[in-house]
């Protein structure tokens, strides 16, 4: 019983990261039609910015939770404006190749500077220790990760579904030329969207820093699974990306309890089945 809840919690934690990352990927893909292979690198950058802020400026976790997404978001905005935006009129393959190259460059640079091994990053003192829930022991920081990532997903969903800015985003996803003819600065909207996706990835990176270690390859390991999540959920579906992230995280955790050998591949097995039965994904609209 303890093992079951323990693995459920790990599944929920992993699911939180899957959800945050696949949400950003889905938002970027929806509007820019770019498969952002640099998403894992942006997640890693978030963790590294938090680590470097602490190392060199003594700026702690709480400030990093705000500063790192802003820094990485700004970095994303510069990349989009100066490079990625030049590729929109070309075959989508170019965007994929460009972001893939970008990921290799960023990760290579950090591996050169900091080595492949992880750097420790301590959870803030406020969230140290744990709580005994009776049926299981919950480390406070992990509880916080689950709650705050749920809130971040919900906030992003509300931003897209319920605000004026979100209506521009949704409309531009359907017909960017017409939205621009209505007087909306769509190129700026694209920059904002890429920055938002990168910022969300960085936010997940800061959350992940105390759970995993801060390492240049932390994103590479995760991003493959996240792509599977996006494929299962359906490209471009916001709520689909969020729900699928949590579902697959939990599925992975449960598999660890009942058949540990399969836990590494269960997500990909689910992906294969979904692709066979519903090629557009669980929440995707048929093209």
């Amino acid at each position: 019983m303890q093992a079951l809840f323990g693995q459920l919690l790990i599944g929920l934690i992993n699911g939180s990261f899957y959800a945050l990352l696949s949400l950003g990927l889905a938002v970027i893909f929806g509007l820019l039609r770019v498969i952002n292979f640099a998403h894992g690198a942006q997640y890693m950058l978030g963790a590294f910015v938090a680590y470097l802020l602490l190392q060199y400026l003594g700026i702690g976790y709480w400030a990093a939770l705000v500063v790192a997404p802003l820094v990485v978001g700004l970095f994303g905005a510069v990349i989009e404006r100066t490079m990625l935006s030049r590729l929109y009129n070309l075959d989508p393959l170019y965007g994929l190749l460009f972001t893939f190259g970008l990921a290799l460059t960023i990760e290579g640079t950090f591996r050169y500077l900091y080595g492949a091994s992880g750097q420790p990053y301590a959870a803030p003192p406020l969230l140290a220790g744990g709580t005994n829930l009776g049926f299981m022991f919950l480390p406070n920081y992990r509880g916080w990760v689950v709650v705050v990532s749920l809130l971040a997903c919900l906030g992003t969903w509300l931003l897209i579904e319920k605000t004026k800015l979100g209506s521009y985003l949704r409309a531009a996803t359907e017909n960017p030329v017409l939205v621009q003819a209505f007087g909306v600065n769509v190129p700026l909207l694209l920059t904002f969207t890429y920055a938002l996706g990168a910022g969300l990835a960085a936010f997940a990176g800061v959350l992940a820093a105390p759970v995993y270690q801060v390492s240049p390859l932390m994103g590479t390991n995760l991003i493959i699974v996240v792509f599977a999540v996006v494929v299962v959920g359906g490209m471009g579906s916001i709520m689909g990306a969020i729900l699928t992230g949590y579902m697959l995280g939990i599925a992975e955790g449960l598999t660890k309890v009942f058949y540990p050998e399969a836990s590494n591949i269960v997500i990909f097995v689910i992906m294969a089945i979904v692709l066979l039965l519903r090629p557009a994904g669980l929440f995707g609209r048929d093209a």
Binding site: K164, S167, R170, A171, T173, F182, G183
Partner: peptide, 18 residues
């Protein structure tokens, strides 16, 4: 050019007042 993912009122309010 009516947007499927927007409600009627969101469609109505979409173009900025110039």
């Amino acid at each position: 050019g009516i947007f499927a993912t927007l409600t009627v009122e969101e469609n109505l309010m979409l173009p900025p007042v110039v």
